[in-house]
């Protein structure tokens, strides 16, 4: 269901999934190109949560998706403020979505969280590969890049793919959807992750 939410800087759209009652999970997609590559995958996870009785919201943040704010005017602080205004006791985020995961919550869950400095390094490589001023079609202001360099995800339950050697609370088999040159989906991995999120929320709720 398409809904909207208000934050101190305006109003943005969001998709809602699942039942009307119970705990709500607010979801953050990665920034820029990886948002396109993981959107269908994230929606599959949220539908999986709905079938497990858990409600969720996937907000467009200012400068993202259907937002009226031009992408070049997007700022990390504003996106975080908007995300914090979306009601929900729990959050889940993929990759650099972890940098947007703000607000008072009972718990956070991050899939392969990416520190801001790593993202900026990657963006620079993408910009050079495109031999243009934009970043593979994304217009990103210098101010936004400065905000990103120092950004680190907050503590969370961290899930990583088996191919990723960094510390994690859980590792799962599967390919990184966020790297795929052409967007794809992974129904098996999405179901596995929905199971883990549902079990984690049940444990948090006691």
């Amino acid at each position: 269901m398409i809904d909207h939410y208000d934050w101190p800087g305006g109003r943005e759209a969001m998709m809602r999934f699942g039942p009307a009652g119970g705990p709500v999970v607010v979801a953050a997609l990665p920034l820029f190109e990886e948002a396109n590559r993981t959107r269908a995958f994230m929606v599959t996870i949220l539908r999986g949560l709905a079938s497990r009785g858990i409600a969720s919201a996937l907000p467009d943040l200012p400068g993202q998706g259907e937002s009226l704010l031009p992408t070049g005017a997007a700022r990390l602080a504003a996106m975080r403020n908007a995300f914090a205004a979306v009601p929900g006791a729990y959050t889940i985020a993929i990759r650099s979505g972890a940098l947007l995961d703000a607000g008072a919550r009972k718990g956070r869950w991050h899939l392969a969280p990416q520190p801001g400095a790593d993202l900026v390094r990657e963006l620079e490589r993408v910009r050079q590969a495109g031999e243009a001023e934009d970043f593979a079609g994304n217009i990103i202001s210098p101010e936004f890049l400065v905000e990103l360099v120092g950004a680190e995800p907050d503590p969370a339950r961290v899930v990583r793919l088996e191919s990723d050697a960094r510390p994690a609370d859980l590792t799962v088999p599967g390919a990184p959807q966020w790297r795929r040159a052409e967007p794809d989906n992974d129904l098996v991995l999405a179901a596995l992750l929905a199971d883990d999120i549902a079990a984690w929320i049940r444990a948090c709720e006691g």
Partner: peptide, 20 residues
């Protein structure tokens, strides 16, 4: 044909991550 310059950027970054 899948390996364009943008995909090269993805391959290099993923290699960095997996091989440290």
């Amino acid at each position: 044909p899948e390996l364009d310059s943008l995909a090269v950027a993805g391959v290099l970054t993923e290699l960095e991550d997996r091989l440290g």
